[in-house]
Design a protein around this nucleic acid. Structure first.
Lengths: 212, 212
DNA sequence: ATGCATCTTGACCATTTGGTCAGGTGCTAT
DNA sequence: ATAGCACCTGACCAAATGGTCAAGATGCAT
């Protein structure tokens, strides 16, 4: 049976590919595209360099694959909203899902940060296309909310950047956060408290709260 | 005269060293420590590689010099505060000076970000020492303000991280900001508006405003 | 002019880089 | 058994890496 054929070899393939992707995400996140070496990735994955290249083709392809995986995770988070929705609920859900992305994929978040730091050579198209459209659509909704007096008339784009940056921080600057707070790692409780804090301050800060 | 001796050779030295530091800050910020090459820095500075190494000794020394310069800029921003001060004024000054640091030294800010991204191998000591002390000192003041009812009882450390991250963002993620907002660069006006926005939202968000 | 210190740089070195390739191993359908 | 296929990997390559060094250029006080 063909299903049995796969059961072993495909199992090995998937196992190796996942190990490579995980190792590469970590190394690229740490050292950036140029700073990462295939040898280093191979060692982190516990495989010979040749084997890594056998699976992924080239360093460039591996990097692109990882970026695409991260963008897919990002997109999965970008649900639609309309003027009918409740600003408080939407903003809170926005902050919470972005924070969840950071918490669940810190390496991917750092990989993304490293890509932007180097000027986003691989993500120009995505930033100037898909993502810009998404931001502008949200921005229009925020503005209509402001017009209806449901929130303060703040610039919606800066507001989106505020949410992105304040959550992203706990992946990208994890080393700093841990060093200053004298922790080994951030617990789920820490994340919950930070998220609550951010929801509280940002919602109140732009005039969106439960009762008036 | 010894003063005249310096006038030319020292002039050349200073000119070259500044060119090297500027070029290196850019290249390190873009590609991180590992990803940067001395050859690339030399080309950006318009000098032969040997000449760069003559001045700076080694890639590692050059990197450390740049980090120290950036930490000096950072420290120059960290003024002292006391419980007597007005929370609104202090928080606003905090946000504005951090934003000014970002605006005036984007390359240095990105260099710092790249260092933290790779796990802060060169800055562990600074983070766990000097900077932690500074954060805790501020945090105590914030807590006393909260006790006196001058601001909401938010966790002061998360508040400091909120200010750092939301300002830092405009250096580290500049490529993303420019791509999404369809700009070539952020003008002084943009920076003023963003700063005003951040001051407004954050101060209001933690219950610190002009009048109740 | 001469001595002295600083500056400049091409040639060179060992090591590492991303990537190729030929020759293997092991499994399965026939 | 054996042909076919996916998987594996050490040996190898040209290019780039950080760094050294010796030989020279430059400028200045004497």
């Amino acid at each position: 049976m063909t299903t049995l054929v796969s059961s072993d070899s495909t199992h090995a393939r998937q196992r190796n590919e996942q190990a490579i992707l995980a190792a590469a995400e970590q190394v690229f996140a740490c050292h950036g595209y140029r700073g990462a070496s295939v040898q280093g990735i191979a060692e982190a994955a516990g495989l010979p360099k040749s084997n890594v290249l056998y699976y992924v083709g080239s360093k460039r392809q591996l990097y692109v694959t990882l970026l695409e995986r991260m963008m897919a995770r990002w997109n999965a988070m970008l649900d639609d909203i309309s003027i009918e929705d409740d600003p408080a609920e939407v903003l809170e859900a926005f902050i919470r899902s972005k924070m969840e992305l950071t918490r669940r994929h810190p390496q991917g978040s750092r990989l993304f940060a490293a890509e932007i730091l180097q000027g986003a050579p691989f993500l120009q198209e995505y930033l100037r296309g898909e993502l810009r459209e998404w931001v502008q659509a949200r921005a229009r909704v925020f503005e209509q909310w402001a017009d209806k007096g449901l929130m303060d008339p703040v610039d919606p784009v800066w507001l989106i950047f505020l949410i992105w940056s304040s959550t992203q921080h706990y992946a990208d600057f994890e080393a700093q956060v841990l060093g200053i707070t004298d922790r080994e790692a951030l617990s789920e409780t820490d994340y919950r408290r930070i998220t609550d804090f951010l929801c509280g301050v940002i919602l109140k800060g732009c005039g969106v709260s439960a009762g008036p």
